[in-house]
Structures are given as structure tokens and as C-alpha cells.
Amino acid sequence: MIAIVVCAVLAVYAGLRVVTERNTMKKLPFVNVISFGVAGVIALLLPHPLTILAAAAYFVGSTLESNAIASTWAGGMRRDD
């Protein structure tokens, strides 16, 4: 019972930090904290085998979104290898 409240409250805290941070690139670590918290909430709400797939899909999708935003901000989707 306490675990799910911890995840949800920390997600809201990170959301407030996203709004108050001025630098666009330094917002992205807080977005990452939100996706950790929300993936934890999804898994704790409904213990079912398919929930792992839902949490992983949400987490990977959110990570890909942050990756695309950061790469476009830095100047294109090129890879530097």
C-alpha cells in the first residue's frame, strides 16, 4: 500500500520539477523519473503477466521520446559513430 503511494507521489514531485526547470535539456532527467514512477504504478495496480509487457512498452516508448527530443534539439537525428 505504501509502495504505490511512494511511486505516485514521486512522479508528481518530478512533474513539478519539470515545470519549474528553465533549461530544456535539464528537464529530461525529471521526465525520466516520471516514467519510472508511472511504470511502477502500472505494475503495482494490476498483477498480471501482461502487465510486464505494458510497463516495459510504456518505459521504452517514453525513453525513445526523450531520446528523439534530445537528439533533435542537439541538431538532427544523426548518430555520431
Binding site: 535539456m25 535539464k26 529530461l28 532527467p29 526523450s66 531520446n67 528523439a68 527530443i69 534530445a70 537528439s71 534539439w73 542537439a74 541538431g75 538532427g76 544523426r78 548518430r79 555520431d80
Partner: peptide, 8 residues
């Protein structure tokens, strides 16, 4: 690893 990580 990617260009976005370097920007951060």
C-alpha cells in the same frame, strides 16, 4: 552513446 546524451 547518442548525440542527445552528449547534449545533456
Amino acid at each position: 552513446g547518442v548525440i542527445g546524451a552528449t547534449a545533456i
